[in-house]
Simulated assay, not measured.
Amino acid sequence: MIYLAYIDWRTLRLPNAITLPLIFLGLSFNWASDLRLTTPSLAFVGAFLGYTVLWTLNAGYRLLKNRNGIGMGDAKLLAALGAWLGWNSLPGILLIATITGILGGLAWLQWRGHQLQQAFPFGPFLVIAGIIELLWPQLIPTFILSKSI
């Protein structure tokens, strides 16, 4: 995951040679291992929804702007996170990735001197969010949502 974040940061690409096996390994691990992170059915739905959510958002953006808004490598990375952690982790991952992505994206654009219309890597923020969700799965419900309600 860290390597994928590095590749995306440097090249704005998430290679299929890494993301697709990561999806397959997540599904296999949760199906075959006694140490599974989620049930096999939640992993399968997570992989499906992880890809579908970002694909749908991109399709809507493409209809409005006639260009892609997010790369499909990001969708495959979110599918991999869903395959490893289950579909119920996806809202937290997307929330954390979006917040850190906005802050990091503004810093990226300022540092690189780009305009707001230019691309920046979202994969590193998905990786950060996935690691947070893996290590502290109750972070959002416990610390963020409980204080805002």
Rank of each mutant, 00 (worst) to 15 (best):
H114L: 15
T39I: 09
R10D: 06
L4Y: 03
G104W: 09
L25W: 12
G26M: 09
G60C: 11
L49I: 13
A107D: 12
L90P: 00
R62T: 11
G73P: 00
L94G: 00
P91D: 08
G46L: 11
W87S: 05
Q117N: 15
L4F: 04
T52I: 09
A129H: 08
G69H: 11
S28M: 12
Q138K: 10
I140V: 14
T39Y: 15
H114E: 15
A5N: 01
T11G: 00
A83S: 11
N68L: 06
W108R: 03
Y3M: 05
A107C: 14
L64N: 05
I18F: 02
T11R: 01
N30E: 07
F120K: 03
W136G: 00
W87T: 04
W87K: 02
L37T: 13
R112N: 15
L54A: 07
W84K: 00
G73I: 02
Y6R: 14
V127E: 03
T142I: 03
G130W: 05
T100H: 01
L20I: 10
Q117K: 14
W9D: 02
I70D: 00
I70G: 01
I149V: 13
A75F: 00
V45R: 01
A83P: 00
P21V: 02
W31C: 11
W84C: 03
S28A: 15
Q118H: 15
W136R: 14
T56K: 12
P15E: 10
F125Q: 12
A43C: 05
G105I: 08
T142V: 07
M72Q: 11
G71P: 00
P141E: 11
L78M: 09
Q118T: 12
F120D: 07
R62H: 09
G105R: 10
W55F: 14
V53D: 06
M1Q: 06
